[in-house]
């Protein structure tokens, strides 16, 4: 018993030491980004970004500048709309397909897999997509942003792999009880798949949240643009600002603005992730099954 303990302690030291090393490797450069976003203009121009600053030296000028944009609130709202509706739509379309593909006895399953894999491998590029979206009359609507990329083959197949991990016996038992596939998906598969639903949901959400290219292409109205586009424009103008004639709109150097805007975009995810993490505890699944 004693050797067991010793082994366990040694193992934990190894594991946590490794994690600590990883943590440091990640935090150091990241810390730099945070510091950059907080460096006051004068200091930045004098000596660049310092390795450490006391909180009373921090400058929130860059954050202020981003947040004070007239278009900021609107853009944040647009982003929220795109992210929420996009994620909901994506999940609503992905879950049934993933479930269908996880049903090994489904006639046509291989055919469908092949057909969607095909679209995973062949990317027609911008122009063929654009021609479709304009013919459907979707340009200048949110649908142009959320519909074309709604289902990701990668996410579908990953979700399928998890669905396949659910023991067939549970489903079979339900089937014997007279449940149809809809009920099985609804009552058994989904409740057992919360971690993967959240994971895939998060993949989708992050994707929609960061997307800036399709809004630029499909939305003409600047007031419809989401946050990443606005932030890009702010940066672009901070850059052009070097050419600007009269007193700047910018009170912060480009690098500072860049870091601040990136941290601002991270913020919602930073809040969301720990909430999701609650469901990422070991045994969450099986506990539910047993009940």
């Amino acid at each position: 018993m004693k050797t067991k303990w010793r082994e366990e302690i040694g193992f934990q030291i190894l594991v946590n030491g490794f994690l600590l090393a990883v943590l440091i490797a990640i935090v150091v450069p990241l810390w730099r980004v945070v510091m950059t976003s907080l460096t006051p203009l004068d200091l930045y121009n004098k000596s660049g970004v310092p390795a450490f600053m006391w909180p009373w030296d921090w400058s929130f000028a860059a954050y202020k500048q981003v947040l004070q944009q007239q278009l900021f609130l609107g853009a944040a709202l647009n982003s929220a709309v795109i992210t929420i509706s996009g994620t909901a739509l994506s999940l609503a379309l992905t879950v049934p397909l993933a479930y269908a593909l996880s049903t090994r006895s489904l006639p046509g399953r291989n055919l469908i897999t092949t057909l969607i894999l095909f679209t995973f491998l062949f990317h027609p590029g911008l122009i063929p997509d654009y021609l479709l979206v304009t013919r459907l009359g979707l340009q200048n609507t949110v649908l142009a942003i959320i519909l074309p990329p709604a289902v990701s083959v990668y996410n579908t197949l990953v979700m399928r792999a998890f669905f396949e991990g659910i023991p067939e016996e549970i489903k079979e038992a339900a089937r014997i009880d007279g449940a149809n596939d809809l009920q099985i998906l609804w009552r058994i598969v989904l409740p057992l798949s919360v971690p993967i639903l959240l994971t895939i949901g998060m993949f989708y959400a992050v994707w929609f949240w960061n997307e800036f290219f399709t809004p630029i292409i499909y939305l003409n109205d600047l007031t419809m643009q989401p946050l990443p586009v606005l932030l890009r424009n702010i940066l672009m103008s901070a850059r052009l600002n070097e050419y600007l004639e009269y007193d700047a709109y910018t009170v912060s150097p480009v690098a500072t603005l860049q870091s601040a805007s990136v941290l601002l975009t991270m913020l919602p995810m930073l809040i969301l992730y720990p909430m999701i993490q609650r469901y990422f505890t070991r045994g969450a699944l099986i506990g539910a099954v047993k009940e």
């Binding site: 469908i112 062949f122 063929p128 021609l131 289902v151 809809l182």
Partner: peptide, 21 residues
């Protein structure tokens, strides 16, 4: 039945662009 919307999605948003390709 429940997969139909997704398949329709693939047809319209993946295969028509492939045709356009």
């Amino acid at each position: 039945l429940i997969t139909a919307p997704t398949l329709l999605y693939y047809l319209v948003f993946k295969y028509i662009p492939l045709y356009n390709a």
